[in-house]
């Protein structure tokens, strides 16, 4: 491999990492605060993608701007669903069967809603930029990918700032680390959970809407990304946005450079393989590894 090829691959790994990160962070915050594995995550990504498509086709709104508009819509959807359904689940410090079944059922409902409204044909968002490329010296990058990356990173940074510098963010971290302690100091855990659920669904929708500019989609959209989100969460842990970013980068790196060694069709197998390897050898994720290194140093 030449250096130029390497740099190109590195660039695409980085761009992919941004997408993967924004795609996983919604699941992470929901799991962290509520210990609910959002199996319907893919369904909300799919909804986000179609919403962006509708905004683009009906109102000629730029797809990236549409993605940013999808966020508040899906935030509200999330809060309504929390109020209708999720808050009725028993609170637990471990994922419960009831929550898995609810979220899985929700995914099926969303998927079928998608088929009902939009049919099963593959759709995509095609603009004048879709095929345009940017050249930085020897590195060639798809313009849309770069813009999507930028939007993803901006949203992650915003979330990071919210989590670290606001009262709401502090309450989220508090519930993630010790729910009981949160209750003691007067965190209204139902309210924080509701907003968190809204944020998680909002980020799912946003990720789906951003991905809609890059890939074609149908109501089954998001399924392979769900598995990737699992890998990223296991890798990066649940403590922080930066953990998710690290997990996303590791996965994107492995998948991108994996192409050199395995056929492209096996990419998903690579993600799964990584999940298995991490669960066996590094159950604490990257955080455990850095802690170990620090202890040795």
């Amino acid at each position: 491999m030449t250096l130029i090829e390497f740099v190109n691959l590195l660039a695409s790994a980085l761009l992919l990492a941004g997408i993967y990160a924004v795609m996983s962070v919604g699941m992470t915050v929901i799991y962290g605060v509520m210990k609910i594995v959002n199996l319907a995550h893919a369904g909300f990504m799919m909804l986000g993608a179609y919403l962006a498509l509708e905004l683009f086709e009906r109102f000629r709104i730029d797809p990236i701007l549409a993605a940013l508009l999808v966020f508040p819509v899906m935030f509200v959807v999330g809060r309504v669903l929390h109020w209708l359904l999720v808050r009725r689940l028993p609170t637990s410090d471990q994922p419960t069967l009831a929550s898995l079944l609810l979220m899985f059922g929700l995914w099926l409902v969303l998927q079928n809603l998608g088929y009902f409204i939009w049919g099963n044909a593959d759709r995509s968002i095609y603009t004048s930029h879709t095929l345009s490329l940017l050249r930085f010296g020897a590195v060639t990058i798809s313009t849309v990918r770069l813009v999507v990356f930028g939007a993803a990173v901006a949203c992650m940074v915003a979330l990071h700032l919210i989590l670290n510098h606001t009262w709401f963010g502090r309450s989220v971290r508090a519930l993630i680390q010790n729910r009981y302690a949160g209750q003691i100091v007067g965190v209204d855990d139902q309210k924080t959970a509701s907003i968190t659920f809204g944020l998680g669904i909002g980020f799912a929708g946003l990720a789906g809407a951003l991905l809609a500019s890059l890939y074609s989609f149908n109501p089954d959209f998001g399924r392979p990304f769900l598995i990737r989100a699992f890998v990223i969460i296991v890798l990066g842990g649940l403590e922080s946005v930066s953990g998710v970013a690290i997990g996303a980068f590791v996965l994107a790196f492995v998948e991108t450079f994996g192409i050199l060694f395995v056929p492209a069709g096996y990419q998903l197998a690579l993600s799964y393989g990584l999940l298995v390897v991490v669960l066996i050898f590094l159950p604490g994720g990257v955080a455990a590894l850095t802690a170990k290194v620090r202890r040795l140093a």
Binding site: R170, S171, A174, Q177, N178, I184, V185, G186, V187
Partner: peptide, 25 residues
Amino acid sequence: TLVPEGRQLWPKMTVEDNLLMGAFP
């Protein structure tokens, strides 16, 4: 307020954030 058995701090939050959380409402 309650200072609970076993302290129940948030281990991965700073001391200052732990304290600030005491004034959450």
